[in-house]
């Protein structure tokens, strides 16, 4: 097909967490502009496997922008040059023929590299486990329409809840801070009536875990918001800060 592109890829290759990595250059030929970025890598990998080389490892799953698995830092930006999409929804038409594309893993001490471009994001898991829930058991809950929730509040909580947990916020932040991720979950439950009983406990527990994981601190650059594929807003961070200081300075809940 005419209009296909040839690209030079500089890909970070690293055997495992403890080994030293380096960039390896590959040629990606005959790339269709309709391919997704990951499909382009699939094709490169097919070539590598056929040559008896190890394919490039990267996390991916749903390939429709919702599971949050994919996580590539492309030409200096998490999820690449296009705004508001995850790497799996980035298409090759966002690149130019002959371009050099540098592909790196998320870089953060809290996200150790597993192999090549795949990182271990279990720090996010531990933060969620520390308090990202409403403590209700199955059964014995009131009717769903028992509590009326103003639509604006419900919509705001929904917007916070859309976070896909990909970690682009950490990757984009010059400090590798996880504030946007943590604040999105804290906010969702802080906004809803269901989250109120544990509101001030939750924020303390989740922030404490976040600090323990070794993420950097927030300097309000806004890079996280700009690179978030689902547009989680900085307002969440302000809300979390507010709740955290309220909890620490004025509430008696302790964790």
């Amino acid at each position: 097909m005419s209009g296909n592109m040839n690209l030079t890829l500089k890909v970070w290759r690293q055997k495992n967490e403890s080994s030293k990595g380096q960039f390896v250059t590959y040629k990606a030929g005959d790339v269709s502009p309709d391919m997704s970025f990951l499909e382009m890598l699939d094709v490169v990998n097919e070539g590598l496997v056929k040559k008896g080389d190890e394919p490039i490892h990267f996390d991916h799953d749903c390939r429709e922008g919702i599971c949050g698995s994919c996580s590539l830092h492309i030409n200096g930006r998490p999820h690449g040059p296009k705004h508001g999409v995850a790497t799996c929804q980035l298409h090759m038409r966002s690149f130019e023929d002959g371009q050099t594309v540098v592909i790196e893993p998320w870089r953060a001490s809290a996200f150790p590299i597993i192999k090549d471009l795949a990182t271990n994001r279990s720090a996010f898991e531990r933060i969620q486990r520390a308090g990202g829930y409403v403590s209700v058991n199955t059964g014995g809950v009131p009717d769903a329409n028992e509590i009326a929730i103003p639509k604006v509040i419900a919509d705001e909580a929904f917007s916070s809840a859309t976070c896909i947990g990909c970690g682009a916020c950490v990757a984009a932040c010059k400090n590798a801070s996880a504030m946007l991720f943590v604040s999105a979950k804290v906010s969702q439950l802080a906004l809803l009536p269901q989250g109120q009983p544990e509101r001030y406990r939750r924020v303390q527990a989740m922030v404490a875990q976040m600090d323990e994981e070794g993420f950097g601190s927030c300097t309000n650059t806004g890079a996280c918001e700009a690179e978030c594929p689902v547009g989680i807003s900085l307002t969440n961070i302000a809300r979390m800060n507010r709740d955290y200081f309220t909890a620490k300075l004025f509430k008696e809940d302790e964790v």
Binding site: V136, T138, V141, A144, N145, I147, A148, A154
Partner: peptide, 19 residues
Amino acid sequence: IDQCVAQGVPFAREYGGLL
């Protein structure tokens, strides 16, 4: 639905606040 709402699942709502 009751269970999910209790967990904080943000279902779409009407202006009156109900689901």
